[in-house]
Amino acid sequence: MSGETGPRKVNLKKLRPYGDIMDDGTVQLCFTLPVEPSPEAREAAVQFCQKMGFDPVKVATMEKAAEGFSTFVIYGNTKFSVDFTAIKVLKVDAQKRAREEIDEIIRTRIGRKLVVLGACTGFDAHTVGIDAIMNMKGFAGDYGLERYQWLDARNLGAQVLNEDLLKRAVEAKADAILVSKVVTQHNIHQRDLKDLMARAKKQGLLEKMIFVAGGPRVTHPLALECGFDAGFGVGTKPSDVASYIVEEFLRRQGVSLDEAKPKAPARKKGKKS
């Protein structure tokens, strides 16, 4: 016996996956090799996992998924670890607020409706995401931006060309633009997003509007990389987006919503590009 007196505590300096014992490093994997199931195929799967740093490797199953294809479910224990205390992640900088509170902030601090345009751009015809954020009904019990009294939210729908979106945004004097991208094959979403921001920069819109990207495969860092101000992924609720828009809008006016903090300077644009 090891003489332990209680449950082992997590070591954040050396963080590993957890299965049933602290620090066991257990990972489940599933993949297909384009060869028929055979003892050799099994060995190939094991060696493949060993090369990825797993030891021991347990093949739970090897199934024939089709002629010439073996699908594996495998458990392996990794020796690698990460230093959790040293991790820095780019996050959307906004406190989550309720609809009523956001409306109240806009009413009292801004005194006019913020204009928000939303669209699925390029060839993308999947409006599920933008509809969930924009439409009155919202998503998972969280009302959409159209429902906000102090937002003038307009959903332009699917397959809006980048140039048209910016034209509409200028006409509407938009304060924020939401772009939804669902289709990601060959990274089409990144190309479209970058194209939009290049056009916006050329037209000098970066200071005037808040650019937000969203979609199941969109992350905040990816959005930043594409030149956007923020990115929202799967599970985002309309109030998450509204919270960010109002906070960022005020931040650009030199107003911080966090009373405890001193005024944050207006963010410089384009520094990431």
């Binding site: 993949f31 297909t32 199934e63 998924a65 089709a66 699908t71 199941p216 799967v234």
Partner: peptide, 13 residues
Amino acid sequence: EAMHTPLLQDRWM
């Protein structure tokens, strides 16, 4: 669904 177009093993499963 909602992640990627199906992989061979997704369809098999």
